[in-house]
Amino acid sequence: MTSRSGSTTTQRWGRRCSATSCPSRPALSPTCSSFAHLTHRPIEELRGEGLLEAARSLLEGGLDWLVVTGLRGELEGRVEQDQIGEFVLVGGSVQLRRHPFVPSGAKGVGDVFTAALNARLVRGGSLVEAVDDAARLTADHLRSAQPGASDEPRQV
């Protein structure tokens, strides 16, 4: 889940990333449950200000950016059952990205997201673009695993 390669990080929202232009700084993209373990907090506290405080504590430890995946609520605490989100923190800037929730019992979904995120960052683009693309690819992957889905391969 840690990205240390200069080709897989971006410092600010709009800045483009390439294999030679990004600094080599650590970053994380944990699932919400992994984030709770990393920050030694109960998952119930990772809403609103509790989520923001926990995330900032990791950035103060030297991370360049943080993307927490698999959120089923938002910063204000409202839960929308048909959506899932990613909390994106870069420096002092925060964004909550929302996407349709795809029900699944699959294991390793966070790993699929992280692989897609890093593949997208290596190709270039901003962190937010990469998060949105990774979320779409992950949802496509989950849909393709459902009964009756097409066997066509997905492109990262």
Rank of each mutant, 00 (worst) to 15 (best):
S126F: 03
T31A: 13
G108D: 05
T39G: 03
V90L: 15
S21W: 03
R123A: 11
T31R: 04
K107I: 13
G148H: 11
R15Y: 07
S93D: 11
L89A: 01
H99D: 10
G62A: 06
C17R: 06
R78Y: 03
L28F: 11
P23C: 11
V109S: 06
Q81Y: 02
V156P: 08
E76P: 00
T8E: 15
D132N: 13
S29M: 08
L71N: 00
A19K: 06
E49K: 09
C32L: 13
L142S: 13
S104Y: 05
V88L: 01
S21G: 10
M1C: 06
H40L: 10
L46D: 02
A19V: 04
G6Q: 01
K107V: 15
S144V: 02
R154E: 09
L52C: 10
P30N: 01
V90S: 11
E60D: 11
G62T: 00
V128H: 05
T69I: 00
G73E: 07
L28K: 05
M1Q: 12
A106M: 12
V90R: 14
S5A: 14
P147E: 08
P147W: 05
G91L: 05
R154I: 15
V88I: 03
R143C: 09
C22F: 03
M1N: 10
G73D: 14
L51I: 06
L127I: 13
V79Y: 07
F113P: 03
P42T: 05
A130G: 13
P153K: 11
R15L: 12
T8M: 10
R16L: 15
D151F: 09
T2W: 12
E53R: 12
S126A: 07
A54V: 07
V67R: 00
D133G: 12
F35Q: 03
H40W: 05
H141Y: 14
A116C: 04
E53G: 04
K107E: 14
C22R: 04
R25W: 10
S57L: 00
L59S: 12
Q155V: 14
G48V: 12
C17F: 00
L121M: 14
